[in-house]
Amino acid sequence: MSAFYEFTIPYQELAVDPQAAAPMLGYDSDMPDDILTMVREVVDETADCYDIRGGYMIFDSVAVNKDDCTLSIGGSTFHISKIITRQIKRSTQVAVFICTAGVGIEQWSRKMLADNEPLKGFIADIMGGVVVELAIDRIQQLLGEAMNAAGLKITNRYSPGYCGWHTFEQHHLFSLLPTTLGIRLTESALMQPIKSVSGIIGIGADVRFNPYSCGLCDATQCVYRNKR
């Protein structure tokens, strides 16, 4: 078991692209100019709302049971579904990660909704999600580089609530970490601030990263499903 590697990521370093909001706003391609202008305004206005922090901890003793689709790390056993089991079965280590965009963006979004600015509120909500995903992309990239240096590769990241892994097991996942960076879990295992992510990444000499992971999942109507 490694130490907890913690990162604070300046918002400016994430190079947030306003066009990233397009799919969630219903556009198949780029947004029209007038709407893009509004998204840019929200992106600019919310730049100071973020407090982006994340980190990971690596567990060396890993047991993946392909029969009952479980993963055992740090004394906890997770029921990770067939889909995730298939992707991480060759892992010799597993990184447990968490990351949050902070509570500010959520508060800003709610304020806009309350002030009869539904579009601004909606855009802020979308961009909060974009930002936390960019942040964890960055942390995953750093993990990948560190592992590459040791001759190892990493898998995609998998989170409770997706690919058939029950959200409730997020409680066990959080209990493995020495800090949760201020992220709290509700009784039903949802994270607060809402714009937070957690999960696992497989590590090993014989694992692979799948560039299109949504294709693995059977939730074809998922709101977050990426189109190829």
């Binding site: 969630m24 219903g26 709407i35 009869n116 539904p118 909606f122």
Partner: peptide, 13 residues
């Protein structure tokens, strides 16, 4: 799309 719908909702409100 969603933005036009929300702008309409704002005008309605």
């Amino acid at each position: 799309f969603v933005p036009q719908m929300l702008l309409a909702a704002k005008a309605m409100a």
